[in-house]
């Protein structure tokens, strides 16, 4: 009986507390949403049959009226790679969101540290700080048992919460070079992988940047934008393709725009190769068939088809 009172007190204290926190919600709001950063591709919206048909084509050369557009296929493939890259970055962030913070301080939250066990050689923690509407966060690692000064940031991010529910401007940067130096990951050639996004107002913008120590190895920049009416745009490069006949192979910059019904336009600019600066424009209908072609280098027959068949994509020009 003499232990009853302290036991009851302990039980009562254990029943107190919780995670009812406005600040936690605001910190969570600083995480980017997957649906805001991933690209919605033209093939994805048009169903399997249409998607399979266009996926087999490629913008290896200028198209012909009535044929399936090769630009659509290139855009789908690029969008897939884009989404895979975004997915890789977001996965670790989304895992953290499942847990309540380990430490709450004014304008600061810490998850972890999670001690490294078994084959993991690193302790892990996630730190978020806030200053007004701006949130910064880092996914950090250190060798097991090291001190506070040993933490290094594998992923850094920031978010300016000025657009409502998880809307605003932010960035995510994975420091692959440091990860290589710390023997955490060994990804050759790439030093950084970056996402910069703006979801505060339409058109939204997501930019995926690869910083490589071999600059010519890969296209370094992908930009995805969305405007009113679910109009979408993807800007990227295709390197070392034989777009026009000649002695050189071309690098092309491609801007693809598409509407929810499948219609779209593609503008291709040759940035390296036989006809440097030449521009090729193509429009396609809801079935993915080319309805209009414009070639800047063809003085005799610069256009084919009706320009009026091209969908209105002006919402993306704002």
């Amino acid at each position: 009986m003499r232990h009853l009172v302290p036991i009851c007190l302990c039980l009562a204290l254990a029943a107190c507390g919780g995670d009812f926190s406005n600040d936690d919600l605001e910190f969570l709001n600083a995480f980017p949403r997957r649906e805001d950063l991933t690209a919605s591709m033209p093939g994805k919206t048009q169903g399997e049959a249409w998607g399979a048909r266009v996926a087999s084509k490629s913008a290896q050369q200028a198209g012909r009226l009535g044929d399936s557009s090769g630009i659509v296929g290139d855009t789908d493939k690029t969008g897939l790679r884009f989404n895979e890259a975004v997915d890789g970055i977001l996965s670790s962030l989304e895992a953290i969101q499942q847990y309540t913070p380990t430490k709450r301080e004014p304008n600061r939250r810490v998850w972890g540290p999670i001690p490294g066990r078994n084959d993991m050689r690193f302790d892990t923690r996630f730190v978020m700080t806030r200053e007004g509407e701006r949130f910064d966060y880092q996914l950090q690692y250190r060798d097991i048992g090291e001190g506070e000064d040993a933490w290094w940031s594998f992923m850094s991010g920031s978010f300016q919460a000025n657009g409502g529910v998880r809307k605003g401007e932010g960035s995510l940067i994975m420091d692959l070079k440091r990860a290589r130096e710390e023997r955490f990951l060994d990804i050759p050639f790439l030093d950084r992988e970056e996402i910069h996004y703006q979801t505060r107002k339409l058109p939204t913008r997501v930019e995926l940047v690869f910083v490589s120590n071999v600059p010519t190895l890969l296209p370094s920049r992908y930009i995805y934008r969305e405007a009113e009416g679910d109009l979408a745009e993807m800007t990227f490069q295709i390197l070392d393709t034989d777009f026009v006949q000649g002695g050189l192979r071309e690098d092309v910059a491609l801007t693809t725009r598409w509407a929810p019904d499948g219609r779209g336009t593609g503008i291709l600019e040759i940035i390296k190769g036989d006809i440097l600066g030449a521009k090729y424009t193509e429009c396609w209908d809801a079935q993915g068939r080319v309805t209009f072609i414009s070639r800047s280098w063809d003085f005799l027959n610069p256009t084919e088809g009706l320009r009026s068949s091209c969908p209105d994509m002006s919402a993306l020009d704002r």
């Binding site: 919780g18 995670d19 936690d24 969570l28």
Partner: peptide
């Protein structure tokens, strides 16, 4: 998206 919260 948001976790349910409790305080006692």
């Amino acid at each position: 998206t948001y976790p349910d919260q409790k305080y006692a």
